[in-house]
Structures are given as C-alpha cells and as structure tokens.
C-alpha cells in the first residue's frame, strides 16, 4: 500500500502508565495496510511548535483502526498527549519496510525481542504471526514494573512471553540478553526492536559466540526530519557487500528494519 496523508479521527486516547499512552486512530482496512515495524508520521500539535511530525510504530490494528503506544519524553509527545478523543489528527502512513516474515523457514525457531517503546512493533509482529499459525517466543525487557504499559495485551498473546525488568520488580531480573541461552539459537530467526544499547548487545553477544547460522533483523530508530526519504536526516551506516566501504541508508525508507549484520554503529 502506498503512503498516504490523511486526516483521521482519534477513536480512543488512554493513559496506560503516568508516562505511557495509547492512541487508537480511525483508518479503514488498517489491518491490511500496515505491516509489523511500519510506522506513521504524526502531526503532534496544531501549532508550529513543535514543528515537524513524530514517528510512531504500529502497536496493533483492526479492520477500521490502528493503535500506537508512546512515551511522553519531550515537546512532541507532550503535545500529542493533549489531543482528545474525537479530534482530527493528521497522519502519514504506512511508512517504512517491515519484518521479513516471508524469510521464516519451515521448522525455524522464531525469537522476538522487544524493549522500552520498541515493544509496539514486536507486539504487532507477534499478533500477525499468530494469524499465520507461526510459533514464536517473545522476550520483553522493561526498566521496572511500573514501566510495563501493555501487560493485558502481552498476556493475551498466545505464544511464549518472557518478561524481564532491570530491577527485578517483575518477571526475571536483569537485561533481556542475560536470559537467553545464545547457544540455543541454531536454526533461528530473530526480530528485535528496542533501545540502541539492547540491539547492540544482541549483535555483540551473537558475534562473540560466533553463531553464524541465524539472522537478526532489527527495527532501528533515528531522529527524523521528514519520514519520507527526502531529507537524509535519519541515516545509519551500513556495510556495502562488495568491498569494505559503507553507505548511509535512510531508516525511514530503507528501514526501519535492517539485517543487523549490515549495521555499522557510530
């Protein structure tokens, strides 16, 4: 589906924790239009400050709407939090590529890893895999139990869900990387979305152990100017296969999902 600019109605806007909210937005056929890891560019305010749109991943869809979940961290998300149910909001979407579900081979183990606000896209991925009868294990990391903004939705999932918190206030204590036996990853495909340190930790650990036989697809986040592949503001460094050189690719249009093997962190 090609990207569109639409004025949409806000169907619901809820506080999940004091800093995390969810917004349900009317969009006919959203369940067909949006794939896991795709995002929307949202006009957060009705004034010129904040000026540019903010990107948010799809958390869930149904035949007539999509939902985003977001954390209030600055002026844009603050402005967004004041928008009311019934208001009209300007949305551009669907944007970006998506997790390559088609690359999952028969009998391959599927591991999904999410952390922080990155949980939105992995939650949607889990739901889509369920519809396709593909088994998965979902590993989710939060800082502390009060950050867990979508517990009911996680409980509703049919696959195996493991929750960790850094301070041990809920589920297993520590980082998600600590709770996985990396030697178990033979014949696996991994999808990941979370804070950069988490993603880098997975890349590092898998390189250390030297497991070759699996792919990690990571959905990355960058500060965005346009979200449309115009400004080159959101680039990541990627390896070029034929030689030792690198290129800059846009997270908004070449991503947000990249094969972690290709990423050069700066």
């Amino acid at each position: 589906m090609t990207k569109q600019l639409r004025n949409c109605r806000i169907l619901a806007h809820k506080e999940l924790t004091p800093n995390n909210l969810s917004m349900q937005v009317e969009w006919l056929n959203a369940d067909q239009d949006f794939q896991p890891a795709q995002f929307v560019q949202v006009e957060t305010s009705t004034t010129l400050d904040p000026l540019i749109r903010r990107p948010f991943s799809i958390f869930d869809t149904d035949p007539y709407s999509f939902t985003i979940t977001y954390k209030k961290i600055g002026a844009g998300t603050q402005a967004l939090s004041t928008r009311k149910k019934g208001d009209t909001i300007s949305i551009i979407g669907p944007l970006g590529n998506f997790y390559p579900i088609h690359k999952i081979k028969n009998n391959q183990k599927v591991l999904i890893v999410g952390g922080g606000t990155g949980i939105a896209s992995v939650h949607y991925l889990a739901k889509v895999l369920e519809k396709k009868n593909i088994n998965y294990t979902l590993l989710i990391g939060f800082s502390r139990c009060t950050d867990i903004f979508c517990e009911p939705e996680l409980q509703d999932l049919k696959g195996e869900v493991i929750i960790t918190t850094n301070d041990g206030s809920k589920g297993k204590k520590g980082f998600v990387t600590e709770h996985f036996n990396f030697h178990d990853l033979n014949n696996s495909i991994i999808f990941i979305c979370g804070p950069e340190p988490m993603t880098r930790a997975w890349q590092k650990k898998s390189e250390l152990i030297g497991i070759q036989n699996y792919d990690i697809y990571a959905s990355l986040e960058e500060y965005m100017g346009c979200g449309l592949g115009i400004c080159n503001g959101c680039v990541v460094k990627v390896k070029i296969k034929k030689n030792d050189q690198f290129d800059f690719k846009c997270v908004c249009t070449n991503g947000p999902v990249f094969n972690l093997k290709d990423i050069i962190w700066t």
Partner: peptide, 8 residues
Amino acid sequence: NPLPRILE
C-alpha cells in the same frame, strides 16, 4: 555529514 543531522 556524521549524525546527528537534524534537530528541531
């Protein structure tokens, strides 16, 4: 240029 490239 290197990142970051954009700031509002």
